[in-house]
């Protein structure tokens, strides 16, 4: 079957199936199982209303359970087992973790991930805050904002191509076509540099790509927060003779601290999962490995599910504090 036809059919079946499910399950509940008539009318209505939320929730809960909750436990199980010939598996305890910890590439990935975690959320939030503040009262501020926001729509792979062109190097003596090398030579650099193969520094060139993408996100959120600051606090500060920088750092920033934390943690999660950029630009060579790419290597290139799952659990463990913090906040807010 032609894929386009299949897609069309899936949309019809999927949408029709969903609507049909919700409609008919409600109908059956009200007409057949607990009809609101006869001598048990009150009891029937009560029971129908007790069951109905679960009818509404069932497809979503089933999908969430299969696609997100179950894998967490299954990955945990896989990380302590080893596959045997014939499709079975045996319990091996912490052996996969030990093997992983003994690998130099793992430590390289972990170290790089920590640098990513330090640099990218900080830089994105800082640039975002700067952009939000600078464009705040500008007439063409909205245009400037949407241009800075634009990389959000670009795929990591697209961004990788864009930045590979920026970092491109041509042999010495010829015209440089990568802007970074052109600038480097213009300001007296001796020979063009292969930026992506320079260990340690190349990590920062990869991080620049993610900062470039995430700054727009930080800016949009922080800009809304800045607009929410009560005018009186700023006016009072001006009356008291505060300078522009004092107003920004002592009046505005403290008032939006909550939002800054939210932006920071959201970008942190993106960083923990960063995969495409590294995969497309260096594939972890030249000491740029990160956890998600290391895991992909183990799972699909080395076919080692044990170690791959163990490294996935490391990512999960790093996400868990944020997960708990989010749940805690959400519950506080619901009360």
């Amino acid at each position: 079957m032609h894929p386009a036809l299949q897609a069309g059919l899936t949309i019809v079946l999927g949408v029709g199936g969903c609507v049909g499910y919700f409609f008919f399950s409600n109908l059956i509940l009200d007409r057949l199982i607990f009809p609101p008539k006869g001598k048990h009318i009150a009891r029937n209505i009560r029971r129908a209303n007790m069951l109905r939320p679960w009818l509404f929730l069932f497809p979503a809960l089933a999908a969430l359970a299969i696609y997100l909750a179950y894998p967490v436990f299954e990955t945990l199980r896989l990380s302590v087992t080893e596959r045997t010939v014939g499709g079975g598996s045996v319990f091996v305890g912490a052996a996969n973790y030990q093997q992983m910890l003994a690998e130099q590439k793992f430590w390289e990935a972990l170290r790089n991930n920590f640098v990513w975690l330090l640099v990218v959320p900080a830089a994105s939030t800082a640039f975002g805050l700067l952009a939000a503040q600078l464009t705040d009262r500008l007439k063409w501020g909205n245009l400037a904002k949407s241009l800075i926001f634009m990389p959000m729509a670009i795929s990591f792979v697209g961004a990788a191509v864009i930045w590979k062109l920026v970092y491109d190097a041509r042999p010495e003596g010829t015209d440089q076509i990568g802007i970074l090398n052109a600038i480097y030579i213009f300001f007296g650099g001796d020979a063009p540099q292969q930026w992506l193969t320079l260990p340690v520094w190349n990590n920062f060139f990869l991080m620049a790509v993610l900062v470039w993408i995430q700054t727009g996100f930080a800016m949009v959120i922080l800009s809304a927060a800045l607009r929410g600051i009560p005018e009186e606090t700023v006016e009072a500060a001006i009356v008291d003779g505060a300078g522009p920088f004092q107003i920004f750092f002592k009046i505005k920033v403290p008032q939006i601290m909550g939002t800054i934390v939210v932006v920071w943690t959201t970008i942190t999660i993106v960083v923990l999962k960063v995969f495409d950029i590294v995969f497309a630009m260096t594939n972890g060579q030249w000491e740029t490995q990160v956890l998600a790419n290391y895991m992909y290597d183990k799972l699909f290139r080395a076919n080692d599910w044990g170690v791959g799952s163990a490294s996935a659990m490391v990512i999960m463990a790093l996400v868990t504090p944020i997960l708990i913090w989010n749940i805690y906040n959400a519950r506080k807010e619901m009360r």
Binding site: W54, Y67, P71, V72, T75, L78, F275, Y296, L323, I327
Partner: peptide, 26 residues
């Protein structure tokens, strides 16, 4: 319905679960 708050919390939690975990099991 009973358990509503718990479900909302669960959704908030699943929001950040890295999909990398789901690859092999799924």
């Amino acid at each position: 319905f009973p358990g509503r708050a718990l479900l909302v919390a669960a959704v908030v939690g699943l929001l950040v679960v890295p999909l990398q975990l789901a690859l092999i099991p799924l």
